[in-house]
Nucleic acid binder design. Structure first.
Length: 420
DNA sequence: TCTGGGGTCCTAGGACCC
DNA sequence: TCTGGGGTCCTAGGACCC
């Protein structure tokens, strides 16, 4: 009984390095939208003590002085590289669950019993590196939560092969004793505090608690974690990609926005993007919500947060309906004389595109289905936006800073790398 | 000056039903 | 005088993940 977790090393930073061999062994960080926070660091940047999620402006000067390199995020590149890695995994493993952009679980139960799983892990690592250029770590263990512990061992002990297998009770006990409870998958900041107070310091301490007791004191979620740490499988490989239950499009603004006439067209851009995703998912929604907020970091100025929803009489994925609903929802929560730092749109209450529940009050003469128009627009906008809705801001998606983006090396003919 | 974006699951409590 | 009990559904909010 074994699962493997394949985890890409400093994924975004590694993607940038693949196309910039001149940056090998140099510190490199990738920033969030607006160049706000550090969201990925190469190991050289970690060595310079650049923390995960730190505001860029706080570390910028010292980091650059130390010869560090920096990139704005380039999700077209990372998404494409991720797809390549996952494709390689699917060709060599019996069953793969793509867990996130940089992680996948492999089901190894069906491999031959005599198969040396540690060697298999090394093979996975080398083939992914050879075919995509992305360095990965591999953790092998009986449950998902334990594969996470195995990966933590690779990182912490700097295992040269990049592969750790927890094959028996002795391996597991040792690894758990070396893992702080806060590093366990499912234990976040809050739970960590509570566990520390209860004298539960290492993952081994947690594993030795009675699951029933944990359920009573904490939650059913943490009970599952305890069982998983003890080798009891509670979380299975999920082959089918679950349908989304909500779609969010939101951004922080590079420059504050304070009047409705500027905010409205930006909101329209979010709605348009969200409904494109909705149609890709082959779903319709019955509710659109909008939210706005000022900066929580700026105490000196008056703060305001607003959230409001609009319900549709029948499920829709027509951009025009949703633009209309969002506009109505925005009005009561927008207040003048505030500097907004972030806004967004949330679609929810989904039903499948094929299911049609006509409204009791719908005029039977109105056209039943406008989906062709949306299909045509989606088709024309596939590679580059050619058709906008009138309420959109066509000059700028949102007021965002993004000053150091690398080329779309793998997804645009115009930005393909040149070899001299 | 400057602090990401996009998700999921669980629970408690209120509304409502018979 | 005495005022049930058991259930479902929905929503908001908290916690977690990458």
């Amino acid at each position: 009984m074994a699962l493997a977790l394949v985890d890409c090393e400093s994924f975004y930073a590694s993607c940038e390095k693949i196309f910039r061999p001149d940056l090998k062994n140099k510190p490199l960080v990738v920033l969030s939208n607006n160049d706000g926070c550090v969201i990925a660091r190469s190991k050289e940047a970690k060595a310079l003590d650049i923390g995960m999620g730190v505001p860029w402006f706080k570390v910028k000067d010292a980091y650059l002085k130390n010869g560090g390199h920096v990139f704005s995020s380039n999700f077209a590149l990372y998404g494409d590289m991720s797809a390549r890695v996952m494709h390689v995994l699917e060709t060599i493993a019996p069953s793969v669950e793509v867990y996130s952009i940089d992680e996948a679980f492999l089901d190894l139960d069906r491999l031959d019993k005599n198969f040396d799983l540690y060697k298999f892990g090394c093979y996975v690592k080398s083939i992914v590196k050879q075919w995509t250029g992305v360095p990965v770590r591999v953790g092998i263990a009986p449950t998902k939560t334990l594969t996470k512990v195995a990966i933590y061992q690779v990182k912490k002990l700097n295992v040269a092969t990049g592969v750790v297998r927890l094959a028996n009770t002795a391996d597991i006990t040792k690894a758990l004793s070396l893992t702080p409870v806060g590093e366990v998958w499912g234990v976040g900041r809050r739970l960590n505090q509570h566990l520390q107070k209860a004298g539960i310091i290492t993952a081994l301490d947690l594993a030795q608690c009675s699951p029933e007791h944990i359920r009573q004191k904490f939650s059913i979620v943490l009970e599952r974690t305890v069982r998983e740490l003890r080798g009891e499988r509670c979380l299975d490989i999920e082959k089918d990609i679950a349908a989304k239950k909500q779609i969010i499009v939101s951004r922080s603004f590079g420059q504050r926005v304070d009047d409705l006439s500027r905010l409205q067209p930006i909101m329209s851009n979010f709605v348009v993007r969200a409904t494109e995703k909705l149609r890709q998912e082959k779903q319709k929604c019955s509710q659109v919500s909008v939210f706005v907020r000022t900066s929580p970091f700026n105490d000196s100025k008056p703060q305001h947060r607003g959230f409001n929803s609009f319900q549709f009489p029948h499920p829709t994925n027509d951009t025009r309906d949703i633009l209309h609903g969002a506009k109505i929802a925005l009005k009561p929560i927008f207040r003048a004389n505030y500097s907004y730092a972030k806004a967004g749109v949330l679609l929810s209450l989904f039903s499948h595109e094929g299911i049609q529940q006509p409204s009791l009050f719908q005029d039977s003469n109105t056209p039943k289905d406008n989906s062709y128009l949306m299909q045509y627009i989606d088709a024309m906008n596939t590679y580059e936006t050619q058709i906008y809705f009138a309420s959109q801001n066509t000059s700028q998606y949102s007021p965002m800073r993004q000053s150091m983006v690398s080329p779309k090396y793998t997804t645009s003919w115009y930005e393909i790398p040149l070899v001299n």
